[in-house]
């Protein structure tokens, strides 16, 4: 069976920690880090990477356009 698997790459130093991607994700993949970036923002990261389906919802709502989205069709046993 083929299953879609996704992953995101956040430009951590440019993320402003607004949290809009967190609520836009249908799979609850993203959370804000406890650590901060150079500007002092709690940046977004994949807290639950296995759940990502590569739908890009997070990326299209991001006001700072700092999310890249990747997607593969993974073969499942």
């Amino acid at each position: 069976m083929a299953k879609v698997k996704g992953a995101i790459k956040v430009d951590v130093e440019k993320c402003k920690g607004c949290g809009l991607c967190v609520v836009a994700c249908p799979s609850k993949v993203i959370d804000l880090a406890r650590e901060v970036n150079g500007k002092g923002y709690n940046y977004a990261y994949m807290a639950n990477p296995d759940a990502c389906i590569g739908c890009a919802n997070c990326a299209i709502v991001c006001p700072d356009s700092v999310i890249e989205v990747y997607k593969v069709k993974a073969e499942m046993a």
């Binding site: 996704g6 590569g54 890009a56 990326a59 700092v66 890249e68 989205v69 990747y70 997607k71």
Partner: peptide
């Protein structure tokens, strides 16, 4: 090759 969305 798996990239589906990035900043324009």
């Amino acid at each position: 090759e798996n990239l589906v969305y990035k900043k324009t």
